[in-house]
Structure formats: structure tokens, C-alpha cells
Design a protein around this nucleic acid. Sequence first.
DNA 1: ACCTGAACACCGTTCAAGT
DNA 2: ACCTGAACACCGTTCAAGT
Lengths: 218, 218
Amino acid sequence: MSRRERPAKPALTRERIIAAAVAIMRAEGLQRVTMRRLAAELDTGPASLYVYVANTAELHAAVLDELLGEVELDGASGDWSDQLVGVLTSYVEVLTANPQLARTAVATRPSGPNYLRLVDRILGLLADGGVARTRAAWGVDLLLLAATAHSAEHAGADATADQQWDTLGRTLSTVDPRRHPHIHDLSDLLLAGSHTDRLTWSFRALIEGLSRTAVPGE
Amino acid sequence: MSRRERPAKPALTRERIIAAAVAIMRAEGLQRVTMRRLAAELDTGPASLYVYVANTAELHAAVLDELLGEVELDGASGDWSDQLVGVLTSYVEVLTANPQLARTAVATRPSGPNYLRLVDRILGLLADGGVARTRAAWGVDLLLLAATAHSAEHAGADATADQQWDTLGRTLSTVDPRRHPHIHDLSDLLLAGSHTDRLTWSFRALIEGLSRTAVPGE
DNA sequence: ACCTGAACACCGTTCAAGT
DNA sequence: ACCTGAACACCGTTCAAGT
């Protein structure tokens, strides 16, 4: 009787754990993806999770890779550099949709399947553009680093982020011209422009720079 | 009598709180700089700190700005771009000495006095190099973003970081050539080179790119 | 205004014991 | 091998009450 009315809990698997983690992240944010919260969701105790997941950092890394599956690798048209900007922009969009995730992306060095897929695509586009192999190899790191950091900074139209931006804006525009002459001089430009424009510009500048800059011993 | 033998506790001030926080960070790492640990150090209860500090994030931001005072702004010789690389390298050195601090630097948007001093110096060097005002204004953000992210990634000769690097190395060199042809093709180059060489190359590429890339509406 | 004790609502991780 | 309960050693933040 109880066999039908309360069916056996499905077995714990790494897959099920990570799926539950992703669900919690989407519903409540990464800060709620804790061992204890997750265990409660899976109707077990936190200790049980340690059979499948080494620690919280590894769990978050797995969630991150899962999300990276959403990055659009072939969405943009145009030449190789337009397409590259498109891929990077998609990456940033995926990350900024989940502020805290972007922050763990900076701390963690991902190596999951979706991350590899992304790296391979970027390398392919750099090859299309005729970027020297050595420059491309180092450049992919720099591009992803910058994209990730951008996401982490703009992470969130959340309240704290906006507030910090405002604070910085006020600080910059009222800066002592004697102590900080250059900031004073450029105060109107420092925070100018939309997110999107600045992001695109950053990517263009990075691509330009990494194409032209020789790697030592090249 | 007891007035001399057990002197009154010095009054709580923001300055004293932050000094204690820096001391704990140097001795035990930022992860120990918690409200409770700090309160214990100052011989009071955690609630008392909230008179001077809004929350843990603000506390960590204050610690960060304090550390930025150690960045060497005039250490390097050479032309403006060599000096700029020098400033950025010094910034990275300060941050990587305290792994977790670099990670909070990505999350937080600093606006303390030492941060302003750093921004002003970088803007000055870009002006020396004749970089267009608009490009310099956006470029300083990009440079600091990349430098911070680099620090956060290489944050630590700590065990986890090294392990992640090794994992990534193994993953990259054994990648399926059919699924990830470009990674396979470049696997020997992707992780090649020393930290320092890669960091310097990144800064050179960034400087090159931001000097040459027009800001929209420029 | 500043400081405090106490409480609320949580954490990660380990480990001996069970199945 | 997998799962669990219970424990250890912590967290941030709030709030009523005191000085």
C-alpha cells in the first residue's frame, strides 16, 4: 500500500543533485544553493551529498558549466570579429542573468564540457581571423577573463550594484581637482556610455590588441 | 585601582575597526575577517560594529582600499607604457598576496582614496601616451578590470588554485580532437608561458587595443 | 549616540554508525 | 558503497534594553 502512496525516493545521483542546484539557483539565486538547502530539496541530509560532490565550490562550478550550455555560439552575423563579439556578448548575458554566478566564475577555473565548447569556438574564430596561433592561445584566456569580470561587475541590476555605481559616480564628479587632476578632467567621460557600448568597445579593443601584440619568443 | 590595572578599553572607532580587520587579514586571511571574529578581537560583541560599518561587504571594501595604499605608482622606468605596465603589475602583486581579497575586488566597486589615487595615476600615464580622452576614460576601467580578474584567477599559490590549473591542463591536453579541434591543435600553447610573461603580454595587448579602438561617437 | 546580550536563522564539513 | 543523524564549529544581522 505505502509502496504506491509514497513511492520510494528516486536514488541520489550527481545528475539529480546538479539539476536541483540549477533549479534552486534559478528560483532563489546562487546564494541559496547551499549544501543544506539542497539536501532539504532532495529530501535527505547534507552529509549524503558529499558522496557525489566534493564541496560547495565544486557544486557551484558544476552549476556554472550547466549554465554555459546556454551561450549562443553561432548567433551573430558579420566577419569573424563581429561573430566573436557576439559569442562573448552572449556569454556575458548568460552570466549577468545570474549575478553571483559571475562572481564564482572569476574565482573558479572552469573545465566542464560547455566551457570547452566555448573555448573551442573562440579559438576557431580567432583562427578564421588569421590571428597567430600563439596570440590566439593567450588571447582566449584574456577575452574570457575580461568578459567574466565585466559580468561580475555589472552583475546585477541588483540594488547594491546600482548603489555602488551611484556612489562611484558621485565620488568621481566631486573629486578634489588638485589631488586627482586627471579624474577631475575626465569626470564626465569616466562613467559615460551604455553598458552595451562599453562592453562592445572592450571586446573590440581586446581583439585589436591581442591580434597585434607579439608573444615573447614568438 | 582597577583604573590602572585594567585600563579602560580604547573607544571603538571606524579606524580602529579597520586596522584590526587588516591585521586579521594579514595573519589569517580574509575569510577570517568576519564580524564575529573581529568583534572578539576588539573585545566586544558583533552588534557593536554595526555602528561603524554597514555590513561585511563594506568592511571588506575598506580593507581592500587600505591595501591599495601599497601599490607602487612610480616604481618603473621607461616610457609611459612601461610605467603603466609597472603600475598594473604592482597592483596585481598587492592583490595576489591576498587571494580572497582579489575576489572581493571583482565583486565590489571600490571608491576609496587609494583607489582614486590609482585611477588618477593610470589616467595620467594614458594622457602622457597621447591616448584620446574618451579612450583613456573607458580604458582605465578595462585595465583595472583585467588586472583584478587576473589576480583573482591566479589568486593564490594556494592548493585549490594549483589543483584547478592541473585539472585544466590535463583536460586540455587530452581533449577529443574531433569535438574540440582547435583546443587540440593549440593544447601545447594554451597553458604555456610564465605567469609574469602572460600578465605583461595581457597589459601590452590591452594598452595597444585601447589606444587604437575608437569609442562610439568619438 | 553608542554599546550590549541575546536571539533568529542560518552555514560547511566530518564522522561513527547503520544498511 | 551508499546513506544518515548528530555534532562541531562557526556565520550575518536585528532588536530591545541599557548607559
